[in-house]
């Protein structure tokens, strides 16, 4: 196995006196789906925001593709960011743009691409999430599940090596949640991406995870596969899987 795509060592982050993350260590290997699991407010989202430089950690080291992101200049970090897809909890679609424009937007720096290439990529990404017909719609015209899918299509269009999912199933009904979870697995298989999936949805974790980390009060409380953790004798961990 090559170098880990993501390495986090002794990461800590506080907001004022509130310590959100403490001595977090994790590693993401190529082709792996790592689920970071925990209650709301346990610092899971902060963790992936530190990972792409949206938040600065107070201590520790974050390495993307073997490079310490704290040592990189903004332009260098942006090059790495293009290899990392990020699906926000709300999908964060640009609401003044159509679905097509949302998908084209991350491609704007790729001067070599022709209009036909861009059109092809947009359609391919939408086909992957089963939403080709929504290409000219505005985000306000889409349902919650469709918004998540378009967000995922926008993430996929850059052909990232790592995808970070922040609560991909939050706010969705169980059927749509299952569809999104299955889509995450399909994408991993099709493009051989690695992913960190932040969730508190047990069903999503079950479908998507190769390995799981459970965070409690900003500290990694347990690690293992879904099968291992679901039969944990620790009462607190077991309570998630009941």
């Amino acid at each position: 196995m090559g170098i880990p795509l993501v390495e986090i060592e002794h990461l800590s982050k506080s907001f004022g006196s509130n310590r959100v993350l403490e001595d977090i260590n994790l590693q993401l290997d190529p082709g792996e789906n790592l689920v970071v699991f925990g209650k709301s407010g346990s610092g899971k989202s902060v963790l992936i925001k530190c990972l792409v430089g949206l938040m600065q950690p107070d201590g520790g080291c974050v390495k993307l593709f073997g490079e310490d992101i704290a040592r990189l200049k903004t332009a260098e970090l942006n090059v790495l960011r293009k290899k990392v897809g990020f699906l926000f909890q709300s999908a964060a679609l640009y609401d003044s743009m159509t679905v097509r424009e949302n998908l084209e937007f991350p491609l704007r720096d790729m001067k070599a691409r022709s209009i036909a290439d861009v059109e092809g990529l947009v359609k391919e990404s939408l086909r992957n999430v089963g939403l080709e017909e929504a290409i000219d719609k505005m985000p306000s015209e889409l349902s919650g599940g469709m918004i998540k899918r378009v967000g995922l299509a926008r993430t996929l269009i850059m052909k990232p090596e790592i995808i970070l999912y922040d609560e991909p199933t939050t706010g969705l009904d169980p059927i749509t949640s299952r569809e999104i979870s299955q889509l995450i697995v399909d994408i991993q298989k099709k493009y051989n991406t690695a992913a960190i999936i932040i969730t508190h949805d047990v069903a999503c974790a079950k479908i998507t995870s190769n390995r799981m980390l459970i965070i409690k009060d900003g500290v990694i409380n347990a690690t293992g596969t879904y099968a291992e953790l679901s039969v944990s004798e620790n009462e607190w961990i077991h309570s998630f899987f009941i």
Partner: peptide, 10 residues
Amino acid sequence: QIDAMEVSGI
């Protein structure tokens, strides 16, 4: 949405 731009390298 601003964070989304930033993480896509824009």
